[in-house]
Amino acid sequence: MKREISPLCALSLSLTAVLLIAGLGAVIAGALVPNVVLPAMDVPMLAALSLIALALETVVFGHGSREWVASLAVAVVDFGLLSLCTGRVSASEAVRAAALGGVVFLCCEVLFHSILDRLSSGSAGKHLKSAAVVTAVLLWLASQSMAGMGL
């Protein structure tokens, strides 16, 4: 599939958009409903945000080659800065969010694209967008085994 921008740029834009929406939700919910108990920033939550971004990237921009180290750097910066900007975490918690978010994101990305690489070479390649969504859902379900592990 032809891409207009590089996979890394697409990934960066997707992840920023997803984390912005999640951050806005947390800020607005915290202001309007003070007694709301927001989900913890544990592995399943970080995996959910990562997988939504990966699925969004594939659906909007298509499936392309990966730069793992650069992806990790993008994820670390995005998770750290945007969590800090919500005002709901301290600086040290933002650093932990950056580190854990980066690792979780990288693991999700490797698994996500490994599965998609195989699917895209087969008959499912005609339905790549659906395959991306299904892959993301299945990986998130798998991440539930790590509920409670987090910041």
Partner: peptide
Amino acid sequence: KELAWSAGALVLACLVLVLTRTAMASTA
């Protein structure tokens, strides 16, 4: 150019979050 887009999007996202938080501080 793409690096500038990515960095710009991140800065914009940070600004949106900080401004939203500031605007809603008294309400919160």
